[in-house]
Design a protein around this nucleic acid. Sequence first.
RNA 1: GCCCGGGUGGCGGAAUGGCAGACGCUGAGGACUUAAAAUCCUCCGGGGAUUUUUCCUCAUGUGGGUUCGACUCCCACCCCGGGCACCA
Length: 838
Amino acid sequence: MAEYNPQSIEAKWQKRWEDARVFETEVDPAKRKYYVLEMLPYPSGTLHMGHMRNYAIGDVVARVKRMRGFNVLHPMGWDAFGLPAENAAIKNKTHPREWTNKNIAEFQRTLRRFGFSYDWRREISTCEPEYYKWNQWFFLRMLEKGLAYRKKSRVNWCPKCCTVLANEQVINGGYCWRHEDTLVEVREIEQWFLKTTAYADQLLDDLKQLESSWPDRVITMQRNWIGKSQGEKVKFAVADVPGLEPIEVFTTRIDTIFGATALILAPNHPYVAKLLEASPVRHHGEAMLARLKKSSVKAEDIATAEKEGFFTGRHATNPFSGEKMPIWVGNFVLMEYGTGAIMAVPAHDARDFEFCKKYGLPIRVVVQPLEGGALDGVTLTEPFEEHQQGKLVNSGAYNGLSPDEAIAKMGADAEAKGFGKRETIFRLRDWGISRQRYWGTPIPVIYCAKDGMVPVPDKDLPVVLPPNPNLTGEGESPLATTPEFVNTTCPKCGGSARRETDTMDTFVDSSWYFYRYCDPRNNRSPFDSAKVAYWFPIDQYIGGITHAILHLLYSRFWCKVMRDLGLVTHDEPIKRLFTQGMVLKGGTAMSKSKGNVVGAHEMAEKFGADTGRLYTLFAAPPEKDLEWNEESIEGAWRFLNRVFRLVDKHAGAVRGAAQFDPETNPVSEKERELLAVTYRTLDRVTSDFDSRWHFNSAIALIMELTKKVYGAEPLAEGIRPEVRKEVLEILTLMLAPMTPHLAEELWEMLGHSDGLWNAKWPSLLEGGREGLAREDQLEIPVQINGKVRGRLSIVRDEIQDSVLAAALGDPAIASHLNGKRIVKVIFVPNRLLNLVVG
RNA sequence: GCCCGGGUGGCGGAAUGGCAGACGCUGAGGACUUAAAAUCCUCCGGGGAUUUUUCCUCAUGUGGGUUCGACUCCCACCCCGGGCACCA
């Protein structure tokens, strides 16, 4: 009797798949395509079971689709640029490339050990010049279109990374995304930006296309991040400083403008200095300003900080009422949003209320609730913000209007009179991509004393990283201190010039990598558009929720840019997105730094890849977090052993048997029962795989079926070999997407010389299986007033009258009726009978 | 504060408005064995009645509602997790 030995079985089939090039795919217009992709890993540390779960989910989908006859693209690659490689290189006195390639080799070995069905010919590594050349190429195209630009700006600087971070990489209100304990500093540096804001509207609107196929929370997070607001920009003339242009304010509530009792500027608003110059409160103001600017660096506290500000000594004129109001500076007004100046309407905005209350500024109600009595500013304890239900008061000609009516009318009037403009503003900012580090894509521009900034011509791409950088981990970009890189000649005049020494954010690499998989070795263009047209959009993308904004927003942006460059024709790159749960141990996500990882390779050595795969799929539904349980995995191991023994036991009898043909083959009652269970299991497993992605309950069903046919009796006596074969084959095929190695081995044991990889997913619709799946004798519950009081055996499709008669004849049920009158009979054919008694 | 998730046995979880707790883990008991491991079988939400068999009853965070029937749909609240957060 043979024994289940995953180590040898898995090695054997991985070799066969490779030799037969089973997972290699090409464009084939005759076949329906399916592109399934897991987010590419950053090759650092070791792969643990959290990663494996992600890839196991993708592999199930890929394998099921392949069995369904799809032409499946399922590639893998490496997000190989990044800071950890550089830091590790400095620490270990090696080269980032060396460290990265060592990790890639290790990752590859582990992924191969798990038998994931990747087309390895398409493997890409973003740190190779053949790849990052195209980052540079795209950058140049964006430069031509004005979508890439350089400006000096306040940026987020992480003192530990020694580099600038994108807004998206600043988390928890001011901390670095890689160093969660390190506060980000604000610095002024010349930076390269990509104009994501040019696509703000499209990025928002096209979310509609994704609503039914992306998780709600990802859509919501992106929507909030883009943060569209519609309102008015209103000009307030400065009354007591001659020659100063009016101050522009952004508001979504122009209807409350008569309630404005102050104008408040951000501390770094350019007007503040001008207003303070020669102001009677200049000294106090400047002292306060220095204080506010200092405290505003601590981004962490901004949300909770107490509102603070000071009066500039100057006044502005309300363009609607002509009223003069004081101009203040307030720490809660952000220069980065809107115009950096607001009108304070304390009666109808909580923040303004808090500020004005503190400094004794007047509070004037301009929207009265429709019911519940009049409000007045003096007794107001919190602002009235229910703007749908109310009418305007104290607002001159606009009194009596509803706020919505007033917004329309006052907006139009302001525009007509030239002091207002309807405006849509976004929270989204342009994407700062400059990084002052070595291990990334060099930004392909050259600075010449004579010609200024000159793009590197396409023919000179790629701009390759110097092999021997000066890595210190401190100060400016390592490239800046590597003379053989910096010093070059100007492409225009041929004179001596300097290269840009910043590298690109690594999110550039991952913004378009999935296109490269379609045509990974192309050296004339980033990809062949015809190939991309066949494979795109990605049918199923799988990854962690952590990338809900960064990667997934940048990718969408990149797609739209490529579309406008004429490279692709679709608006959105990813049709369906699935965010899988994390694998936890001790309540937190597995990570090397927390020391709670379960190494993937160790798991494969101990139980085999198939057991590891099965367990991660079985222990929880794929979208939920999974707490690792070392005892539970034994259950998966035991189950696979049981399946192996089952097939091994019957293999001899079954191997030579004919293929079962349900249509021409009369079956015995016992065989029929067995087949019915098998087919019904198949039916439910199919739907769990196809539409519901309930892999855990699919496995439960397969376990149940196994239990039914396991042991000596059920499969042996009175069951012909061809029927046994049918049952065992379906069992094997259902397992194949999840435990592919074992399934291949079983398939061979069952007498197939052709690999299971050629087999199709079994269908109930084929050859009379559907008829055999039907049960003729059913047991249904009988309820009285909705409570189950008995069970009844009925014939399939038995009509109500006959079922009711049988129920009334059942003594157990009759005793519950106890002479009471039946008011109503609910009968669901083949499902249940419910008697409502009075 | 706002926006998303989620709350079911000792644990992970199942249940497409129709028998709550499938399947697995743990635990208990038994078979096999000289013994152990492995394997196989039985039991395993609470309370009560009957103490062979079965029946009743409570129970899916809490309180209401819709329905013949609710873990599932609706309303309100509580708790947990995550995201955003002075965005004008």
